[in-house]
Design a binder for these strands. Structure first.
Ligand code: SF4
Ligand code: SF4
Lengths: 138, 138
DNA sequence: AAATAATACTACGATAAAGTACTAATTATC
DNA sequence: GATAATTAGTACTTTATCGTAGTATTATTT
């Protein structure tokens, strides 16, 4: 009942880019600042580039920056970018039933619907800009 | 952001036992009814027996039944029984930080605290009896 | 006592997620 | 142009989760 490591990395690294938005940041820098595995982070950043969340600048003095304004990047965008299962995070069910017919819900549904609504609300309405504004630990 | 397969199996099989509490149910029956992998279910049930959630009756005409009244079995008990990481499900954080100092919270904390509270509430206060009462699909 | 139907146990295999190694391509600086 | 610092890409290894196989043990029925 938690995000995958990859999702955690993605959220945190994009938060970092959002807070330090004045310049480019190399994978090496991000690796040192956030203490994520260097090579894994490289792969992750390549993926985020392909998904259009960050812009990469190759070569010496290169690095990464956010592809669009942090006000326009939602947590939901990030989660959907890193997971390639094709299932949207906000459509996912707690029990992961293959077919979930809402007209024939399972026993947990009534109990799950309230937390689920709040989670979806968080994912769909929280932007990187908001997170950055909190001035908390990344 | 969902339960593990094992957790799903555990919740659903115990729900089944809760609804059909009048008799014993063999692994074979449960396998057919719920369509979980037979051998995996055997292992799971052995584990649930050791954790004291169900009682096993060996031999012909044997099977499993709940170890205590379904009013006294909470979702949280089930999750903690099947995960052997030692981390209590209700103490777990969304980002899975190794050390989370609540006096020095991360950026997501304020956004996460409300959904988290509802999830904990669901896990800590929902009993199998309640689920069974809903008369919904298992 | 034998046959049967059930759980209990241990070890192994398959799959997916996480992490590592190595090399190629790109670009600023010298 | 050479060099150094960076991203990009591919393939591999490791780890955890999920699932399977085979056998031993137990209890009921006949
Ligand atoms: S009924 Fe609700 S809780 Fe159950 S599987 Fe479907 S969406 Fe999930
Ligand atoms: S501060 Fe809150 S959200 Fe962040 S890691 Fe700790 S418990 Fe989780």
């Amino acid at each position: 009942m938690h995000f995958s490591k990859t999702s955690e990395y993605a959220i945190r690294v994009l938060s970092y880019l959002s807070v330090h938005n004045e310049s480019l940041h190399s994978v090496n820098t991000l690796h040192k600042e956030l203490d994520f595995p260097y090579k894994y982070l490289t792969k992750l950043m390549t993926g985020l580039t392909k998904k259009g969340l960050v812009i990469s600048n190759r070569g010496r003095e290169g690095g990464f920056s956010l592809a669009r304004d942090s006000k326009d990047i939602y947590l939901n965008d990030i989660l959907n970018a890193v997971e390639d299962s094709g299932v949207n995070e906000d459509e996912r069910c707690i029990l992961g039933f293959d077919k979930c017919d809402s007209t024939n819900p399972c026993m947990l549904h009534d109990k799950w619907i309230k937390p689920k609504t709040l989670i979806d609300d968080m994912l769909l309405n929280t932007t990187l800009a908001e997170l950055a504004r909190s001035n908390k630990k990344i």
